[in-house]
Simulated scan of single mutants.
Amino acid sequence: MLYPVYVNKGDDEHAHGAEIPDFPGCFSAADQWQELPGKIQEAIELYCEDEDMELPSPSSLDDLVNHPDYQGGLWMMVDIDVNRLKTRSVRLNVCLPEGLLRRIDEEARSRHMSRSAFLAMTARKELEAR
């Protein structure tokens, strides 16, 4: 599904910053233009993780282009794979060694993520690597 993304163009010292208006508070960044779509997909996946929410319909670019909050940057349309968005969680009970759980929590905290989001991200990466 094509979503409009507002981009503040980077320079030699700053990454390109992306804001996705249909997902309030969802941001991403990349040093290279070609990296932006993948980084935006990942940001939206993390945004939706563990959220009981309906996916928003994409806003019209015509409605956004003159919005005062989005001036001075660029617009791009990004094809978001909504099938990869996990908006409903299933509660489960698992047993983990205490030391491992402590390390998981520390790493999740350092990434500003919940334990569940970190475990899901890690499991997804492992499964995709196969």
Results as ranks from 00 to 15, higher is better:
Y3W: 06
P4W: 14
V7I: 15
V7H: 03
V7C: 11
N8W: 07
N8P: 00
K9P: 06
D11M: 03
E13V: 13
H14Y: 09
H16E: 02
A18C: 15
A18S: 08
A18L: 10
A18V: 13
E19I: 15
I20V: 15
I20L: 15
P24G: 08
F27M: 12
S28R: 08
D31T: 13
Q32E: 09
W33H: 07
E35P: 03
K39Y: 10
I40L: 03
E42V: 01
E42N: 12
A43K: 04
A43R: 05
E45C: 13
L46T: 05
E51A: 13
M53I: 15
E54P: 07
P56D: 07
P56A: 07
P56S: 04
P56E: 06
P58T: 08
S59P: 04
S59C: 05
S60P: 00
S60W: 01
L61P: 06
L64K: 02
H67P: 02
G73F: 06
G73P: 06
L74R: 10
W75I: 07
W75T: 10
M76F: 01
M77P: 00
M77E: 10
D79K: 13
D79R: 11
D81S: 01
T87H: 09
R88A: 11
R91C: 00
R91F: 01
E98Q: 15
E98L: 13
E98K: 15
G99K: 14
R103H: 08
R103Q: 14
I104Y: 04
I104K: 05
A108G: 07
A108E: 09
R109S: 12
R109N: 11
H112C: 09
H112I: 05
H112S: 14
H112Y: 09
M113Y: 03
S114E: 03
R115Y: 03
F118K: 03
A120N: 14
A120C: 05
E126W: 11
L127K: 11
E128F: 06
E128I: 11
